[in-house]
Write a protein that binds this DNA or RNA. Structure first.
Lengths: 212, 212
DNA sequence: TAAAAACTGTAATGTACGTTACATTATCCT
DNA sequence: AGGATAATGTAACGTACATTACAGTTTTTA
């Protein structure tokens, strides 16, 4: 039940470390496709190579494997969002770049699998949304809040409540386009359609920020 | 597999109709709490009264029961969103009313259970997001688009792309407040906090719509 | 009220899967 | 090379649950 001694996970040998990684990769593929319940450990082992025995030695349980996978993958998937930003562009360009990063992640199939799990099974696994928000939305919104607050203080835009605007902007990106894709109602849109959406939303947020 | 002859479901007798409804109610509670996979039919019958035999006679399968439940509940849950709107308020008041309706549904525990299923298991059950969007987001956004387009043509607000604004507005409502509640990261916010959020978002969208 | 139909409770069946045990094979160290 | 250790493949165990079968009970109907 309790995963107290998680971090030991004796991957002493380099061979074992490779197995461990292969299993995490396979787990990501299977879990993100089927969700936690429907994912079968045998299917994961079939894909990763190795054996159930090794899996249990390394991760202890299905949940152990799941957490190890999530902890590693979350950061990787979100990485484009926390990349350092080139300084001193005009606000519209900076916002466009942020929006492109967001949409890139939102439209990535693996990230969508993660999102489905966070939203669908987060209640069952409190660690899951915790890790997710810490790696993804939290830093993005914090950075954006700081950025907008800064622009406001320098009188470049009017944004007395930068937290609210950052919040709104992130929400705006998750439009129909995203929801219908993540639920499988429509195929992933092509780059042009995504770009059109980005432009519209940036236009709107720029109007929000107009002085006066 | 295929649920061809769904609609027959011989609830001839009034007693059977009552059972049917009780089972749908119990199914809603259990499915929304645990999700499709984790929900157990025995648990549903335990709650509804009646028997597994009757359940199978009425619904044919677990999926049959699920679809019957979703079809009925979706419309009910979303009902506040499609209520007719009193005419001729000022835009800010109308938008506030729409926002209150949206947040009311978004924060409703049963609706959150539905939302978790749509997002988490929608890929597995294409009917689910289909029904959901048809009952919820689609009519709301359509009505809002029409409303904004109308205001634009009458020169009351500046909104050349009312679809985009309606889309953005619905997205803005789903802020951290919602995501953290629906994932169980935080308790449901009190009415005051929700109202504050509504006011902020309406303020922002009004800025979007400012002429000039 | 008695036969027919509808409904219920319980148990049986089959399956899928998490987890463990064990015998076999490959790898590493001296 | 040869013994110790690590890793694998397979199968067994226990459980949970969807689905079905059936015998008993209630409700309806004539």
């Amino acid at each position: 039940m309790t995963t107290e001694t998680d971090t030991d996970a004796a991957d002493h040998t380099p061979r074992m470390a490779a197995r461990r990684q292969a299993m995490i990769d396979a787990a990501a593929a299977i879990f993100f496709e089927h969700g936690f319940e429907r994912a079968s450990l045998s299917a994961i082992v079939r894909r990763s190579g190795g054996s159930l025995s090794t899996l249990y030695q390394l991760f202890g349980s299905k949940e152990g494997l799941f957490e190890a996978m999530i902890t590693q993958r979350c950061a990787e998937i979100m990485e484009p969002l926390t990349a350092p930003r080139p300084p001193d562009q005009c606000p519209r360009e900076t916002l466009t770049r942020i929006a492109r990063g967001l949409m890139g992640v939102l439209m990535d199939p693996e990230a969508q699998g993660l999102w489905r799990m966070v939203m669908g099974e987060g209640i069952k696994f409190p660690h899951l949304p915790e890790i997710y928000f810490r790696c993804g939305p939290d830093p993005v919104q914090a950075a954006m809040t700081r950025y907008l607050g800064d622009l406001h203080e320098r009188g470049i835009v009017r944004c007395p409540d930068s937290t609210a605007v950052a919040n709104a902007f992130c929400g705006m990106m998750q439009s129909d386009l995203f929801y219908r894709t993540v639920t499988g109602m429509r195929a992933g849109p092509d780059a042009a359609e995504v770009e059109r959406h980005i432009q519209k939303m940036v236009d709107l947020v720029m109007r929000m920020l107009a002085p006066g």
